[in-house]
């Protein structure tokens, strides 16, 4: 019992160390990697452009629901004019970075884990190594860098479209004057809120895409399964760990910054 606990603790810390080393190597191997720009553009396309529709749809509905719920709750206190600050604060400080990260993980993160897992399975990663190409620089580095660009952008899109959603709920469907909504939004949000939003987006981006790359890259190390099962197990792990890490990191950052 005790030794089992000890073994699994050691295993977890070993894996954490592996992950940290993998991430560090991913970033450092970007230096000197040739034709990185082309692969970076492709990674931005996969994580950003392809995920844009889902971000815009989810962002709109998040704003709509916030506006609807918030309006009726605030109306009960006679403070419906505070709808703007409610929507803006929830979106910019919490919901936009968190939900955007979860959406990108669900669409692009899972796909890239599966892609790397299959490349590992079909020996494409070994092939890169035998050709003298660093697979970290070739496959991992562009995706890690793309995440740092894409996540803040997607978070901003999510927040802005969410604010519009809140306005549609409060001012188009419900009787709050639009000028009251927008002026209170501007008043409620300060530079520190936007800074917190961007810090979160950067941390989530760095964390989740690194987790997805790591799980795909090490698909052959799943001791219990092989082949297609290993790829599916890695993809599941990548999505689950990424989602957990987003929410845990969100709590940590909020408690540190507020």
């Amino acid at each position: 019992m005790l030794s089992a606990t000890g073994r699994s603790t050691l295993r977890i810390f070993g894996e954490l160390g592996d992950f940290a080393r993998f991430t560090a190597r991913g970033y450092t191997s970007a230096i000197g990697s040739r034709r990185l720009g082309r692969r970076l553009a492709r990674a931005i396309y996969e994580q950003g452009v392809r995920c844009l529709p889902v971000i815009l749809i989810v962002g709109t509905f998040t704003g709509l629901v916030l506006g609807l719920q918030g309006y009726h709750t605030l109306k009960g206190f006679g403070s419906a004019s505070l709808l703007g600050p409610l929507v803006a604060n929830s979106l910019i400080r919490e919901l936009a970075p968190v939900l955007a990260a979860l959406m990108i993980v669900g669409q692009a993160g899972s796909a890239l884990t599966a892609e790397l897992g299959i490349q590992r399975n079909s020996e494409q990663i070994d092939a890169l190594e035998t050709m003298g190409i660093d697979p970290h620089g070739f496959l991992v580095a562009p995706r890690l860098l793309a995440a740092l660009i894409v996540y803040p952008i997607m978070t901003a899109f999510f927040a802005l479209i969410g604010l519009v959603g809140g306005w549609i709920s409060g001012s188009v469907l419900l009787p709050l004057p639009g000028s009251v909504y927008w002026s209170s939004v501007y008043r409620a949000i300060g530079p520190e809120d936007v800074a917190q939003c961007i810090v979160k987006a950067l941390v989530f981006g760095g964390l989740t895409i690194a987790l997805c790359c790591y799980n795909g890259f090490t698909a052959h190390r799943r001791s219990t399964t092989t082949g297609a099962r290993a790829v599916s197990a890695s993809t599941t792990r990548a999505v689950v760990f990424s989602s957990i890490s987003v929410l845990a990191a969100d709590y940590l950052i909020t408690s540190l910054l507020v």
């Binding site: 660009i149 949000i189 936007v194």
Partner: peptide, 20 residues
């Protein structure tokens, strides 16, 4: 995409975030 994203970020930081 990147250009539109930078615009959105700038708008968020300069217009909405500058309210106070």
């Amino acid at each position: 995409f990147v250009l539109a994203g930078l615009l959105a970020l700038t708008f968020l930081a300069m217009r909405i975030g500058a309210g106070n």
